[in-house]
Design a protein around this nucleic acid. Structure first.
Lengths: 368, 368
DNA sequence: GCGTTTTTGAGGTGCGTACCTCAAATTTGG
DNA sequence: CCAAATTTGAGGTACGCACCTCAAAAACGC
């Protein structure tokens, strides 16, 4: 149950300057240093400078853990996701919950809130009801609309950091997700090269051609196909609007009319229905299919060869990054960009990572 | 210079049980709870159980930040790398130094130590000189030898956690790096598919066929080629022993004798020399070349088309993971396996990530 | 039952910081 | 130069925990 923390002995201290050192160095009292550090009023400009100079000279950095302890600071973050039931959203939600649990020891709490996917005003109202008294930050995955822009602006004006998830919002503090244009380009090379450069036709599917991420993917895809694979004819995008029925219909129709289709780029959701339709038409494994997001079903389809390649983003990373970024923003701290950059991952059957272990069971590592 | 931490107001507290709560719940004093928590002697088994029961009932988890503050705990880690001057090692070292700097605020210090690459006994002696009084953990990148095995065992016996970097060591506490067999398989599919399944010959290059990572890559590569691409003939591996001269010689010879070579799998280092030789022979961009590790030079070669695809691991992730794992081991804490798994990344020209920004310059994010 | 050993409690100090109060020192305005 | 306003200092408490001492209480041996 309760184990002592430490097997190895303690180390000789690594000395870092403290507030007391600053006070001595600056020739002022602790109270004054505190006033400067925490931007409290009642200090002459001259004194402020003296303190800041001492800080610079000593290379002082505030011990955030001690500071947070003293303030009993805690970080309650809200993450807003559409109430869609797609496997992607579900996996994302699960990853967020897990990251939230893992962050609990560092006084971070994550509140997952779902909003009606098709109602921008309801979302805006929800955002309006969030208070910076209860929250330290907000993460949000939603398509951009005028009301949403205003609501985000209002939130930030109230001092709450807002980060955009998966699909960018231009007036958020930060965007967490992949570069969708580059993702589209990557899909393009994979399809192009796997098809040997042609000849043949390529079908493109997307939920809605209005969402920012879809637009960017399509643009990147076309860019590469036109430049590098002129032998492949890219057919017009088909919109599915998230409806399995529509998807089934447009795919069937297109495949009947375009017999030279050798590849499919599925930009958005609906991968489950797509593989199903292909199966029914006896085309499983006969076409080169590139899609997005490594959901459980896509995993399976990769293994059976129904899907050739997947462009994906690591949702665990995305979730942890979300918390780290929100926290950094809440603390007004700089962030490590390279750590927060979400990579575009290419998954084939051969580099399919092991299924992540269930969250709760803490694994035992090797023992001597 | 010194900014106040917090713009947003404080939140209503998220209450977590403290040691005082345990004492009350268990009906004992604070001192006794402390004795149990830190495994100090002089407590009856019965009392220990009462305390542990209370801990379980309340769901108490120790506040590690407060604990570390109280103990003035700090984490000094040693990372041992061969003194090779390859771009890979240099990039790795740079990533480690950067991760070490980023971890400084959390009382973590990283000491980079280089050892003579070809002298296992010197390395063993070095390991023998490390003390658990000065260090909290050791990370090590080295080929396995009998003396090394013994040295690692001795280190662990002295209570120092040891993790293996890049290439696995079976008796380390943990391995941080990619699954090299899967990496070899991935290289196989890429080459196979990019070459349209054949016909043709494929050349395989490696520094030394003795290192564990090389063996595994070759095995994974062969596995896929035999099973999925029988139309491609895989030539015998060529060993370069890290010598540019040897590499130049064997490649030239092989290409002269095997005119049907259409692809190259470069399992180890020497990518700089390889592209150079290919250029001299007028073959730049004419062969499909798959190699490992996204070093600066390989980036360049990807952009010019001299190299087709790269199997790589994110060194920033690797470095941060090293510190997290060492810390978790030092604290005897469980680790989040999914966060520590280093992914096999496939990099083509089209998904080449932006060059990471220089370490020191903290970036400013968007402002309202 | 008594002395001895073992176990427990009460209390304090410190880690580095935040935040508060009150009095003393300094500066400012007229 | 004096009164008023501003700035500074001294000191305390708290956060959650580690670690120490000393005395009181309980368990133990015989």
């Amino acid at each position: 149950m309760a184990r002592p923390i430490l097997a190895t002995g303690n180390l000789e201290p690594i000395l870092r300057p403290t507030v007391n050192d600053i006070a001595r160095e600056a020739g002022v009292s602790l109270a004054t240093v505190d006033r400067v550090l925490n931007a409290r009023p009642g200090v002459r400009a001259k004194t402020v400078k003296a303190v800041n100079d001492a800080i610079a000279r000593l290379g002082y950095v505030r011990d955030l853990t001690a500071a947070n302890l003293a303030r009993s600071r805690n970080y309650r973050m809200a993450v807003l996701l559409p109430d869609t039931e797609s496997q992607f959203i579900q996996s994302l939600a699960a990853a967020l919950v897990e990251a939230g649990q893992a962050a609990a020891p560092s006084r971070t709490e994550l509140r997952l809130i779902r909003f009606p996917a098709e109602d921008p005003h309801a979302l805006a109202a929800l955002l309006g009801s969030l208070s910076s008294r209860d929250l330290a930050g907000v993460a949000l995955m939603a398509p951009e609309t005028p009301v949403l822009r205003d609501a985000v602006r209002a939130l930030r004006a109230r001092g709450l950091p807002v980060v955009a998830l998966v699909s960018d919002l231009p007036n958020a503090d930060h965007f967490i997700g992949i570069d969708n244009r580059a993702a589209g380009r990557t899909a393009g090379v994979l399809l192009g090269r796997f098809l040997g450069g042609g000849p043949g036709q390529v079908m493109v599917l997307g939920q809605s051609l209005l969402a920012r991420d879809m637009i960017e993917r399509r643009r990147g895809f076309d860019e590469v196909m036109q430049r590098d694979f002129p032998g492949l004819e890219v057919l017009q995008s088909l919109e599915t609007h998230g409806s399995p029925t529509t998807l089934r219909q447009v795919v069937t129709e297109m495949l009947a009319n375009a017999p030279r289709v050798r590849g499919i780029y599925a930009m958005g959701g609906g991968n489950r229905t797509l593989t199903q339709v292909l199966g029914e038409m006896g085309l499983s494994g006969k076409l080169t299919v590139v899609c997005h997001e490594l959901t459980p079903h896509v995993r399976q389809a990769l293994l059976t060869g129904e899907i050739t390649a997947v462009i994906t983003q690591n949702l665990g990373h995305l979730a942890r990054s979300t918390l780290r970024v929100l926290r950094a923003k809440a603390d007004n701290q700089p962030l490590d960009e390279s750590q927060e950059q979400i990579r575009i991952e290419i998954v084939l059957r051969e580099n399919l990572p092991d299924l992540p272990a269930p969250a709760s069971a803490a694994r035992i590592d090797r023992v001597a």
